[in-house]
């Protein structure tokens, strides 16, 4: 369980996050949605201790973010930041292998190698394992990054807009893998999504943010309504319910 209480964050005079109180349950997929600049990525970075938080407390299970040793935390929670364009000059297998660093500290065991191979297989990368990242397509590279995060073998996986440069096939396949991981291995996945349709289709819990605050929290059925979408995104698309699924017209 991730518990966030009283977290605010300012950069200069700008208020990025404003008194966030939020509990994300253990297990399942929680999706953060909201317009650009809502503070979703900042919140994710604070949970993952990428930036020191200024006020409030964040705990992940029994670990207090900021007080817990860095390496212990790295075995509890992994984050994949938004894709950057500079790919390291590594093969896919080498990149995924670095996900095991918190465990082996530079001396990988047979178990580490086995877990790397499993991560490659889970994300359909076995055939690409020897290829260098700079020779792959954006989608394949993104999959390799997610596989590295997965290989870190943490209870919690945070993903910041992983679907950004993926086509529809790659997006769906990634979301399915994530849902499988949540269901079969009990991983907790917190994901920032731009497309509400993906959040509606795959998330167990949706957190809607706007202007550094949390506007609404609930199941896709509760959140993806015309009223909430209008309030959060300031636009009013039609929302259809087909066979019990919510679909937003774009």
């Amino acid at each position: 369980m991730i518990e966030i209480s009283g977290v605010s964050y300012r950069i200069g005079g700008a208020r990025i996050l404003d008194g966030i109180n939020l509990t994300l349950p253990k297990g399942g997929i929680s999706a953060l949605i909201g317009p650009n600049g809502a503070g979703k990525s900042t919140l994710l970075s604070l949970i993952a201790r990428l930036m020191p938080h200024q006020t409030g407390t964040i705990t992940v299970d029994n670990l207090v973010v900021g007080a817990c040793p860095n390496n212990t935390f790295a075995r509890k929670l992994a984050i994949l930041p938004q894709a950057s364009d500079a790919a390291p000059l590594l093969s896919v297998r080498e990149l995924v292998g670095f996900g095991r660093y918190p465990y082996h500290k530079g001396r990988p065991s047979a178990e580490d190698h086995a877990k790397v191979e499993r991560a490659l297989a889970t994300f359909g990368l076995t055939d690409l394992a020897a290829r260098r990242l700079d020779t792959l397509s954006g989608g394949q590279r993104q999959r390799a990054q997610v596989a590295m995060t997965y290989a870190q073998d943490t209870d919690y996986i945070l993903l910041d807009e992983p679907l950004n440069n993926l086509d529809i096939a790659a997006s769906r396949s990634l979301m399915r893998v994530l849902r499988d991981l949540a269901a079969s291995q009990g991983r907790t996945i917190v994901i920032v999504l731009h497309d509400i349709n993906y959040a509606a289709a795959y998330a167990d819990l949706i957190v809607a943010m706007k202007g550094g605050r949390i506007v609404a929290t609930g199941t896709p059925d509760d959140i993806v309504t015309e009223a909430v979408v209008r309030e959060v995104f300031e636009t009013d698309p039609k929302i259809h319910r087909i066979d019990g699924k919510v679909i937003i017209e774009v």
């Binding site: 201790r49 790295a74 992994a78 390291p88 670095f98 660093y101 918190p102 530079g106 870190q152």
Partner: peptide
């Protein structure tokens, strides 16, 4: 420290994430 240097080459975020 070869692995450590390779990881900081990936940036600060990647380093913190891997517990470095």
């Amino acid at each position: 420290a070869a692995d450590q240097f390779a990881i900081i080459g990936m940036g600060r975020t990647a380093s913190v994430n891997l517990g470095l």
